[in-house]
């Protein structure tokens, strides 16, 4: 259906409110995804005995979850009350579910990451070091089992709102976010690990990039009118950058990622940057779609008019 050229609003003011979230939240979407993807890489590397990849990925997961958690707390209107999140567990609240996922995942990923950091120290930690190395594998495996939930729930977090561009993308966002998480984690490992050990990271990065790019394409169709917001304002630049970086990074990985250390690092960095851009682009598009009443009013008005026409046809 061709969108209505004109629509009515109250002096052009928004109908729904944009989220009050600042860049903390898209940053968390990226960091949480990076951590989740990295935990999966670390677990695989652990089981396949790839110590360099395991070390890089565990530390990345630790850094991602720590920075992501800090961003989440920083974004609160009352950061000192962040523990109130643990008063209750509500399946109707993706944020509540996410909190519990993070609460379970965070300590596991941190333990695994800490054991790698302890190994990097120039001296040995007598008791703590032994405990860490004993706990690292089970903790890392539990973290990897929780990681898919951490990577995908954020898609529901955004979709479960009245923000047109987020709710409209509810069938794609979880796929885009897991793809983006895989691309970012793979990309970071390509930057930091040697060519040989990074082979699984390359495969995961390319697979993630393909899923993310394909699902972003499908999102454009699902969104209908509010797809405009992916090509307006800040989202426009970010989305274009995301596509170029992710596609370029994937192509670079396939062509040169296994052969040239510099090329691998460049491709990995591009995939990482592409993931950042994707999260910020989708975040900004949603904010824009909430601030402009056309994305709320026009689809709803069309729905009402269709129902009215249908009812008129029946009677």
């Amino acid at each position: 259906m061709v969108p209505q050229a004109t629509f009515t609003s109250y002096y052009g003011r928004p109908v729904v409110k944009a989220s009050p979230w600042k860049s903390d939240i898209p940053a968390y979407l990226f960091l949480g995804g990076l951590a989740a993807g990295s935990s999966l890489l670390a677990a695989g590397a652990d089981l396949r005995n790839l110590p360099e990849l395991r070390r890089v990925a565990r530390i990345a997961a630790l850094a991602g979850v720590a920075a992501g958690g800090a961003a989440l707390i920083h974004d609160l209107g009352r950061p000192a009350r962040f523990l109130n999140m643990l008063r209750t567990a509500k399946p109707t609240s993706p944020m509540s579910m996410g909190t519990w996922i993070l609460t379970a995942y965070g300590p596991m990923a941190s333990l695994a990451g800490a054991s790698e950091l302890a190994g990097l120290l120039p001296w040995k930690l007598p008791i703590a070091g032994r405990l860490l190395s004993l706990g690292a594998r089970p903790a890392g495996l539990v973290a990897a089992l929780l990681a898919p939930a951490l990577a995908s729930y954020t898609g529901v977090l955004l979709s479960d709102t009245a923000t047109p561009a987020w709710h409209g993308a509810r069938r794609e966002l979880p796929y885009i976010f897991v793809g983006s998480a895989a691309a970012a984690a793979g990309g970071l490992a390509m930057c930091c690990a040697g060519l040989e050990q990074a082979a699984p990271a390359r495969r995961m990065a390319v697979g993630g990039a393909v899923v993310a790019l394909a699902m972003e394409q499908r999102m454009e169709q699902s969104l209908g009118l509010s797809a405009e917001t992916l090509h307006s304002g800040k989202a426009r630049t970010l989305m274009a950058a995301n596509r170029a970086l992710t596609a370029g990074g994937a192509v670079g990985t396939i062509a040169l990622g296994g052969r040239n250390r510099v090329a691998a690092r460049a491709a990995g960095a591009a995939l990482l940057a592409g993931s950042v851009c994707a999260r910020f682009a989708i975040f900004e598009a949603g904010q824009l779609s909430a601030r402009d009443p056309r994305y709320t009013v026009i689809p709803q008005r069309e729905r009402v008019d269709r129902t009215t026409a249908l009812d008129a046809g029946r009677s």
Binding site: P20, L76, G77, R78, N84, M85, S93, M95, W166
Partner: peptide, 11 residues
């Protein structure tokens, strides 16, 4: 109880 997470606002 509210800690200002802001989720209710876009919801």
């Amino acid at each position: 109880i509210c800690n200002g997470c802001g989720y209710c606002i876009p919801a």
